[in-house]
């Protein structure tokens, strides 16, 4: 009985987690994109974009590691971006 209750609880927890993910999958992608754009705008000097005044940059640079890693990940995936985008928005 106890074990049944336990596995029910686990099952419910998985269901809850799954539903929570279901409710945010696209927003998380959007968040990723926004963070990547933020990094690109501030770190854009690397790719030839006009960069913001050095002062701003120097101030936020030490905290940008996550954003840069998001941007790196995004750019690493650029060779496959079309299909990935199609996969994000599921059709049929």
């Amino acid at each position: 009985m106890g074990r049944l209750l336990d596995s029910l609880k686990r099952g419910f927890r998985s269901f809850d987690k799954g539903m929570r993910e279901d409710a945010t999958s696209l927003i998380r992608k959007q968040l990723d994109e926004e963070e990547s754009v933020f990094a690109l705008l501030t770190m854009g000097a690397f790719s030839g974009l006009p960069s913001p005044p050095t002062g701003v940059l120097l101030r936020i640079l030490p905290h940008m590691s996550r954003e840069i890693s998001v941007m790196n990940k995004r750019s690493a995936g650029l060779d496959d971006v079309f299909s990935q985008t199609l996969g994000t928005f599921d059709i049929d």
Binding site: S14, G18, D22, D32, K73, D90
Partner: peptide, 23 residues
């Protein structure tokens, strides 16, 4: 990376996958 790449329970993943392919 805990965002795109993150291990999911197989039942949960089944749910996501099925919900995506069933329209």
């Amino acid at each position: 990376d805990n965002c795109d790449y993150v291990p999911a329970n197989k039942f949960v993943l089944f749910g996501h996958h099925f919900a995506s392919i069933a329209g």
